[in-house]
Nucleic acid binder design. Sequence first.
DNA 1: CGCACTTTTGAGGGTTTTCAAGTGCCGTGG
DNA 2: CCACGGCACTTGAAAACCCTCAAAAGTGCG
Lengths: 228, 228
Amino acid sequence: MRSRLALVASDPLDSVASGCPVRMRGLELQSICRACHGLPPLPQRRLARKDTLCFEGDPADRLFAIIEGHLKEERVLEDGRTLGIRLLQPGDLAGAEALVTSSYQCTVQALGSARVCAVPVNAVEEQLRSRAAQGLALVRAFSQQIVELRDAMILLGSMSAEERIRIVLRQLTSTHARGAWLRLPLSRQELADLLGLALGTVSRTVQRFARDGDIELSGRNIRVLRPL
Amino acid sequence: MRSRLALVASDPLDSVASGCPVRMRGLELQSICRACHGLPPLPQRRLARKDTLCFEGDPADRLFAIIEGHLKEERVLEDGRTLGIRLLQPGDLAGAEALVTSSYQCTVQALGSARVCAVPVNAVEEQLRSRAAQGLALVRAFSQQIVELRDAMILLGSMSAEERIRIVLRQLTSTHARGAWLRLPLSRQELADLLGLALGTVSRTVQRFARDGDIELSGRNIRVLRPL
DNA sequence: CGCACTTTTGAGGGTTTTCAAGTGCCGTGG
DNA sequence: CCACGGCACTTGAAAACCCTCAAAAGTGCG
C-alpha cells in the first residue's frame, strides 16, 4: 500500500497532501504549505519529549499545527498544580487563542518526539483575507476543537475517577489491536493532571483494572485484555 | 444616552451595527444581517424562559447567534443528570458543531426571554466562501469560545465547590455596582449543573457566603457586600 | 389561599485527596 | 560488575470534601 502510494504520487503537491495530516483536513495555511514543499522559510519545529512549543503568558503570535507525534496542552494553577486541557495528535491545532489574545493561555509540551508547524498569526489572517475557502477549513477545525473541549468538560464535571480513566485508556489504546502491548505516552502524573485527579487515584484505579483482568500492566506499558 | 444614539443613527445599517451585539463583534453573517434590516426571511427567534433552541441529537443545520437575553448550553447524561457547559450572552454563538457534525450535541435553553438569530449552516458556508473577511470574524468568535471552554475546564477540573461558586457569582454580578440588588438568571439546580455540583452543595455554600457577610440573599435575588 | 416549585438544612456515607512510606527500574560512576 | 541515587510508581491510613437522601421551610403564581 505504501509503495503504491509512492508510485501514484508523482506530483509533489499531492504527495504532501496525502501525507500531511493538516492538509488532509483541508487546511492549507500559507506558511505551512510552503514548508511542506521544502521552501524557506520553514516554520517547522522538531521537538523532543518535554520540549515546549509555548508557555502560558508568552506573546501569542503563532498558530501551531501538529504534523507528527503527541503533545499536551496544559495550564499551571496558582497553587502549583497542573491541569491538562487536552491531548494533541497529528492534524490538531494549538494556540487558537493567538487570534483573540496577546498571550498564550496554555503551555504546550511534547510527550515524545514531535514535529509541528508554527504559523505566524498574521500569515493566517492574511490567508483568511485573501483565500475565502481557508476560512471555512479553519472554522471547521476550531468547531471540532470546541466539540472536543465539551467532551472533556463532561469528563471532568460528571464522571467518577474510574470512568475518566477508563475513557482515556480506551482512547489511548484505540489504535492498537486487542492484546497488543503499547507504551503509554503519559506518566501517571500526567494522566492525573489531564483527568483532574490525584496521582494516587490514577495508580490505584489502573491497578484495579489490572487485578480485574481488564488490562495487563508493566510499568508504562499496557495491554488490553478485555474491552474497556 | 439612548436618545442620543437614536439621533445619531440616521443610517439604518449603522444603527443596527451599534445595537446588535453580533455585528459589533465584526460578524455580519448573511442571513443575520438581512434579518436585522427587517427583510424576509427573518431567521430571528424569540424565546421565553425554558424554551429551547435545539435539543441534543436534533439535526444540526443552524448556527445560533444570541441577540438578547441569557441562555445555557447543556448536556443530559445517560443517568439523567444534566451538566451545564456554559452560559450564553448577547453576542455569543451556539451550535458550532453544526459545521462538523450532523446533529447537535448540546441542548440550548433560554434562562429568560431571549432573542436569537438562527442562521442556516449552508448560508454561513456560502458566506465564508464568498466573503473572505467573514472567515476571520468567525474564526475569532470560535477562538474566543475555545478560550472560554478552557476556563470552564479549569473550573471543573481543579477547583473546590467554594471556588467554583465564587467565580460564577463574581461573573454574574460583574455588571452591577457593589451593593445593588440583582436577580440571578439561574436557579440553584441550574447553578449546580453548570458547576458540576449537587444542589445542596450550592445552596449551603451560598448561604455560607451570606453568613460570612460577603453577600446578602433574598431567594434568587443577591447583593454583593464585599468583593468576592 | 392553596398548590407547585424552589430553597434550606441536616445526617450519614462514599469517593477522592493528602501525606507518607515503601518498591522497582534504570543510568551513572566507582 | 555492582552500588548508588533519582525518578516513577505502588500502596496504605486518615481526613476532607462532596453527595445522597430526606424533611421542613419559603416563594411565587393562579
